[in-house]
């Protein structure tokens, strides 16, 4: 039952965006977000430009707008924070609909909302068009330490197994009439967490035993990763390049 959860963001497909090697997409998204983040917030007109660029990528990748927008709900807590800023920030005040608001707070809220939304949008597109495993191999190609990639792979492989164990323990609790109501239930839930840790750690040891039993000494056998052609790189980097083209006038104006 946990399986839906790990692959929630990925939208299988065969669009040109899907086919690009993962590491080129990672670099492209990171560069794009960097450009967005370093755009001055006063250049209000630049942000719709970025949004249009992302919409273009989504269209090429055939990611439906509704899908992308629903997945962007993760930023809701920060929308709340951003909406608070005009009320708490210092400095000059202005009056909007009879309410005293801070000018710098309004700018701050706009800044966080615009940049945060564009960042989440870019990440959602990346996750929707790339298999998780490819993302990890892409990170490895980008010189992320292999050990870290291994740890992340194990977490992915066993995340579902452990989430399932947790779900079974919950069913076992509830089958015996337990209802979690208020902090009085914490001791029981914490024992669940403790038991889960013991099970998980022991499974980790068994996995390790199974690995050393087959001659593992700390490094994974090399798996062939796909390298990117010049054309693929240019296709991927078209996004941040276009964003930079929007950004430069924003800096100079």
């Amino acid at each position: 039952m946990g399986s839906g959860h790990v692959h929630r963001l990925h939208l299988p497909g065969h669009s040109p965006v899907h086919r690009l090697p993962a590491h080129t997409k990672l670099v492209a998204v990171l560069a794009f977000v960097l450009v967005v983040v370093s755009t001055p917030r006063e250049a209000v007109w630049a942000y719709p430009g970025y949004a249009l660029l992302l919409a273009g990528v989504a269209r090429t990748a055939r990611v439906p707008a509704g899908f992308a927008l629903r997945r962007m709900a993760v930023e809701v807590p920060f929308v709340a924070f951003a909406l608070l800023l005009p009320f708490v920030a210092q400095g000059a005040r202005t009056e909007v609909l009879g309410v005293q608001l801070s000018v710098s707070g309004l700018w701050g809220a706009w800044n966080i909302l615009a940049k945060g939304t564009l960042g989440v949008g870019a990440s959602v597109l990346l996750a929707a068009t790339t298999e998780l495993r490819d993302l990890l191999l892409g990170l490895q190609r980008l010189r992320m330490p292999p050990l870290l990639v291994q740890i992340a792979s194990f977490m992915l492989r066993y995340g579902d197994v452990i989430a399932d164990e947790l779900a079974r323990m919950r069913i076992a609790r509830e089958s015996r009439g337990f209802r979690a109501r208020g902090p009085r239930a914490w001791a029981v839930l914490a024992r669940t967490a403790g038991a889960l840790f013991i099970r998980t750690y022991e499974r980790g040891e068994r996995v390790h035993l199974a690995m050393v039993s087959r001659g593992y000494t700390g490094t994974m056998p090399v798996t062939a990763g796909s390298s990117a052609t010049r054309a693929q790189w240019s296709a991927a980097l078209a996004l941040p390049a276009a964003a930079l083209a929007v950004c430069l006038p924003a800096w100079t104006l």
């Binding site: 740890i151 977490m155 995340g159 452990i162 998980t200 980790g204 390790h208 000494t217 700390g218």
Partner: peptide, 19 residues
Amino acid sequence: GAERTAPLAGLAAAFIFAV
């Protein structure tokens, strides 16, 4: 420890994620 790090840290990460 070299060969224990990946499986144990990976499983521990999965535990934190689950918890």
